[in-house]
Computed example of a mutant assay.
Amino acid sequence: MGITIRKHRRNLSYEDAATLDELWAIAKQFDRSFYREWKDHWDERGYDEYIVVTEGRLPYCESPEQYVCRMETRREILAVLALCTEKQRERFLLHALYDLSYEEVGKICGCSDVAVLKSIKAVRKKFLKFFG
């Protein structure tokens, strides 16, 4: 009797084994080899460092140049924020970092949404003046 089992796009036939137990042993061995192959060539594109990085399998590690650029940008942003008043800085950061609306920032800070709008515009002007 010929029994064929299709597993992972491959055929396993009963004719390859003498008993049903032997067929299951072959199937288990096939699963192990398939898993090893899948680990090496997942996503049917083969192992590629680009795939590993883009799929988030490796931890991100920035280059020294990227680190220096990030730190310079951070210092420049902090320098502009240092020129602002405490209320302007607080309102701007709530709006920019947490994506809160003017009304939500106004409720948190205890002021109107117009006051929040004016504070954010003042901070933006300072950024444009500093970077412009």
Rank of each mutant, 00 (worst) to 15 (best):
L81Q: 04
E22Y: 03
K125I: 10
Y98T: 04
T73G: 02
C84M: 07
L93N: 00
L100W: 06
G110P: 01
D99Y: 08
R10Y: 15
Y14G: 15
I51F: 07
T73E: 08
Y14K: 07
R6G: 08
G56R: 01
E90D: 03
Y47G: 11
S101R: 01
L100V: 00
K107A: 05
E62L: 13
V53L: 14
K125Q: 15
S13Q: 13
D48Y: 07
K126S: 12
M71E: 13
G110L: 04
D43L: 12
R6C: 04
R10L: 15
E44Q: 15
V53F: 09
D16R: 09
K126H: 10
D21C: 10
K121S: 11
C69M: 10
L83W: 00
F131V: 09
I5H: 06
R124H: 14
A17P: 09
S63F: 07
F127P: 00
L20M: 14
T54I: 10
R32L: 12
C69L: 09
Y60W: 03
R9N: 13
L128S: 13
E15N: 11
G106P: 03
L97Q: 04
E103D: 13
I3M: 12
M71G: 02
V68C: 00
K121R: 15
L93V: 01
Y102A: 06
E103M: 12
K39S: 02
Q66L: 10
S119A: 14
A17H: 03
K39L: 08
I108V: 08
E76S: 03
Y60D: 12
A115H: 08
